[in-house]
Simulated scan of single mutants.
Amino acid sequence: MPIPAKAFQRWLHGIAPDVSTSDVCRAAGIKRSTLAQQLVRGKVAGGTVVSISRAYNINPVSALAGFDAFSQLAGPQRQPTRYELISQISTPDLLRAVLLRSVADPGGQPHAGHPRTNQPEAGLSESRPSALGPPPHATSVKSWVEAIDDGELRHRVSVATGIAPQNYSAQLTANRLAPELAIATSLAAGVGPASGLVATGLITEAEAGWPPGARQAALDSMTDGELTTLAGERLQTLGRALRRQEHDQEKTDKIWENLG
């Protein structure tokens, strides 16, 4: 979601009044030419504000909320739902959890109706809190939307934003979502507006106010049946994507053979 250049410059002057543009870019790790191009166009990317905020120890959510385009982020942040937390756990992490439970229960007896309590198991539970990779993951955007979709969510987002359903679906397939669409999706689903920005990777879970260890706790709350089913669904999705890639590669190879 672009931010008007004038509003951005006022904000930047407020947090770094005596700092040159070059020094700001150096501190934020962004190219000066990139910022210059955005200013010339009159629209600054939200990611630019996020990078500069981090460089000056300002919470990016609070910084973004100061702009009209991100005003929905103002105020206390709503906590993510259990399903949102689970959606931000990568497929490899889900599979590792399945294996850990199998090792902890060598008899292989399922516990379909009861979540695991994360009891200490030699060499296993001690590493759990820090084992999960941070969002986003390979399907974080699509998984997040699926986690909050009541069946009519995409239609509501399309009506609210004017985006064509096929264009919205294309972004999800590519595991990306423009900030304005991420926020619109959150609002249409009735969840915290910052959650979608975590799924897209614009901000971190800590910056969004998610409690430390919340994703791990959500994972531990899943029954064996829930965990295995979700991991299986993720693998099926991955398998379909890989088959499409293989098919496309075969077609490309045949074209080159014919041209050769």
Rank of each mutant, 00 (worst) to 15 (best):
G151T: 08
S22I: 09
Y83F: 04
C25S: 14
S140L: 06
A28G: 15
A147I: 01
R101H: 15
A63Q: 06
T228Q: 11
P2V: 00
W11S: 15
L94Q: 02
N118M: 00
A69N: 09
T185S: 11
L12F: 07
L124K: 01
H114I: 09
A69F: 03
R154M: 14
R215L: 07
P134T: 05
A63G: 10
Q216Y: 01
K142R: 13
P179Y: 00
A178D: 13
R240M: 15
S186P: 02
T81P: 04
A231G: 09
A69Y: 04
M222L: 14
V159S: 10
I58L: 14
P193E: 03
G260L: 10
G75D: 08
E233L: 14
G162E: 08
G75C: 09
S20R: 06
S127G: 12
I203W: 01
V24H: 11
A241M: 03
I255G: 06
V145P: 01
V40M: 05
L73W: 05
S20A: 10
Q72R: 12
L132A: 10
Q216R: 01
I183T: 12
D93F: 04
L172A: 12
M222H: 04
K142D: 04
A5I: 04
S53A: 11
E121M: 07
C25G: 08
H137M: 05
S71L: 12
